[in-house]
Design a protein around this nucleic acid. Structure first.
Length: 564
RNA sequence: GCGCCCGUGGUGAAAGGGAUAUCACGCAGGCCUCCGGAGCCUGAAGUUGGGGUUCGAAUCCCUACGGGCGCACCA
């Protein structure tokens, strides 16, 4: 569709006196399809032409001559509406999907430049809760989207495997831990210890001191501390892998916070050398100006902080990947933190500091308040995923009992529902956790998209479009066909926009619209019962839709079963 | 106290400053001798209040209200 916009811009360039890019930005899609495919609002011209916009639209409509591309140009009030020739439109879009030089919607705009995406990053020794789902699926989808656009995406799981809380965990384990329980249910046991630690800490402030002590031991390389830490880490990671496998997610790197431990002294020295640090109340800080609290690099007890490791990681990543962009998919509760972090990079004089970007998302919360690991108020992601798969298993047993390989499909659909449920809304909004809602598979959901895809596959199993049949644009005359065609044409723009805004939701919304357009087509335009050319044309349209649905789901990290 | 984010039908959401605000759930009706009813069709129902900017505001600014989050030794 971009090329059509371009051509309309060329046509308008002369008569309006605006330049091409400006026109493309102004061009919009009319609210109702029978008005046209594109509209050019003439308000902007009123001043230069010293006439009313409606008058200008009328004049322009009269001036524009014949074009091989356009069926009609008309004015409607202040708008100039363009109707593309159906045949040209259909042939362009469908042939692009069927036999384009590159996969439809993909591009080479990334030119192989690196985009490092820091996502998921769960904390070791803590449960993988539903809250972590967001970072995990948004980051994974962005990884696929950037790859699709020709970037070299690098997915990094910056594991929370270092920090003061490990001092607490070690202390708690030494006091009340059980090896047997740890083996049986590692994270469950560690969580229980962590919760108990915070309970007892309130009565006994001495505990906090002990926790600090053990973290310092860890940073100084104490054998006993390191061994325990290593055990916790290995056991936790094994559990996390189980979840990533369910979700179908892999990372390019698992270098967590601990990886940077041995580099921290160097990192701190580097920052000190820039002359931007000072001592304050025994801690090492960087002042960030009036509108932000200072950034602490080192606590008075000598231990490092989260940001120290993040700065170290950023330096390391730039050294290794020379990224064009570094994304941090982390909750919106950390906006201030990232402002501080990036400001330090800037003050360090790093020219790539502004390539770093926080991609925030809203919190998952309960009706009655936020989730809290400390209080043990969490819902395990694995439990959610398992329930979704179970539900989809039951639905299959009821609706499609003869389906082969039901277990695989149940997993694809159940997991797809959860992922889509998260990605379909703007990431910045908070979400309220609700079992009923998360397990609802009707309406604007992942299964709806998958179901539409499976239906097309079912048609195509009965008869595939002939490989040599030409695309016949004149065949499409029903309004459902037109709508579907136009929607197919919007896919590349949706992918680009999703990348520009770092919002997979753009693609999710696009797919909802596409699936709806297809279902309307399906109910109003018989495919297998159509005849001759029309049948071929409709098979082709269905096939193209199948391709785009599957591709779009892939970009979200969701599978597209052929039967369900 | 200061700062940031979010307020759209009953509920959950969409909308690149533009035309008659778009969907879904739920609700009321209808559609399987018909390519898969996890679907389709019809209907009722909405931009938190008040100012402003603009030819034009759900969108930008101010303000009030409601909700969330954050504000140096957690991550």
């Amino acid at each position: 569709m971009e090329n059509f916009k371009e051509q309309i811009a060329v046509i308008l360039e002369g008569p309006t006196g605006l330049d091409r890019e400006e026109i493309k930005l102004l061009l919009e899609v009319p609210p109702s399809p029978d008005m046209g495919d594109y509209a050019f609002p003439c308000f902007r011209l009123a001043r230069t032409f010293k006439k009313g916009p409606a008058e200008i639209a009328a004049k322009l409509a009269g001036e524009l001559g014949e074009s091989p591309l356009l069926a009609r140009v008309s004015n409607a009030g202040p708008y100039l509406n363009f109707v593309l020739k159906r045949s040209v439109l259909a042939e362009d879009i469908l042939s692009r999907i069927r036999e384009g030089k590159q996969v439809y919607g993909s591009s080479s705009r990334g030119g192989g430049r690196a985009v490092v995406i820091d996502f998921s990053s769960p904390n070791i020794a803590k449960p993988f809760g539903v809250g972590h789902l967001r970072s995990t699926v948004i980051g994974h989808s962005l990884h696929r989207i950037y790859t699709f656009l020709g970037y070299k995406a690098v997915g990094i799981n910056h594991l929370g495997d270092w920090g003061t809380q490990f001092g607490k965990t070690i202390t708690a384990y030494k006091k009340w831990g059980s090896e047997a329980q740890l083996k049986r249910d590692p994270i469950g046991h560690l969580l229980q210890l962590y919760v108990r630690f915070h309970d007892e800490e309130e009565k006994d402030p001495q505990l906090e001191e002990e926790g600090r002590y053990w973290f310092r031991q860890l940073e100084e390389g104490n054998r006993e501390a390191l061994d325990l830490w290593q055990t916790f880490r290995d056991l936790s990671l094994r559990e996390f892998q189980r979840i990533y496998r369910l979700l179908g997610i892999e990372f390019d790197s698992y270098q967590g916070e601990s990886f940077y431990n041995e580099r921290l002294a160097g990192t701190i020295a580097e920052i000190v050398n820039k002359g931007i640090t000072r001592e304050s109340q025994g801690a090492l800080i960087v002042d960030l100006g009036e509108d932000m609290p200072p950034c602490l690099l080192r606590k008075k007890d000598g231990a490092t902080l989260y940001v120290t490791r993040d700065i170290s990681a950023a330096l390391y990543r730039f050294e290794h990947y020379r990224f064009a962009k570094a994304l941090y998919v982390v909750g919106a509760d950390q906006v201030l933190y990232f402002k501080q972090f990036f400001k330090v990079l800037k003050l360090m004089g790093l020219k790539w500091a502004d390539r770093c970007q926080h991609v925030p998302f809203g919190l998952v919360r309960f009706k009655d308040g936020r989730m809290s690991t400390r209080k043990g108020k969490v819902i395990l992601l694995e439990e959610v995923l398992n329930k979704a798969v179970q539900l989809s298993r039951e639905i299959i047993a009821e609706k499609n009992p003869s389906l082969e390989d039901q277990e695989t499909v149940a997993r694809q659909v159940g997991i797809g529902a959860i992922i889509f449920g998260d990605l379909s809304n703007d990431r910045i909004k908070d979400v309220e956790f609700d079992w009923e809602k998360i397990l609802d598979f009707s309406g604007e959901t992942g299964p709806y998209i998958q179901y539409s895809h499976a239906r097309i596959c079912s048609i195509l199993r009965k008869e595939a479009p002939s490989a040599k049949a030409p695309v016949m644009g004149e065949a499409y005359t029903a309004k459902e066909e037109e709508a579907l065609l136009l929607q197919l044409g919007r896919f590349p723009a949706a992918v680009e926009r999703a990348a520009d805004l770092n919002k997979p939701s753009v693609i999710a919304r696009y797919l909802i619209d596409l699936a709806r357009d297809f279902n309307q087509f399906y109910h109003h335009c018989p495919v297998l019962k159509a005849e001759g050319d029309l049948k071929q044309a409709r098979l082709l349209l269905a096939d193209a839709t199948r391709e785009v649905l599957a591709r779009g789901l892939y970009l979200l990290g969701i599978e597209a079963p052929e039967k369900m």
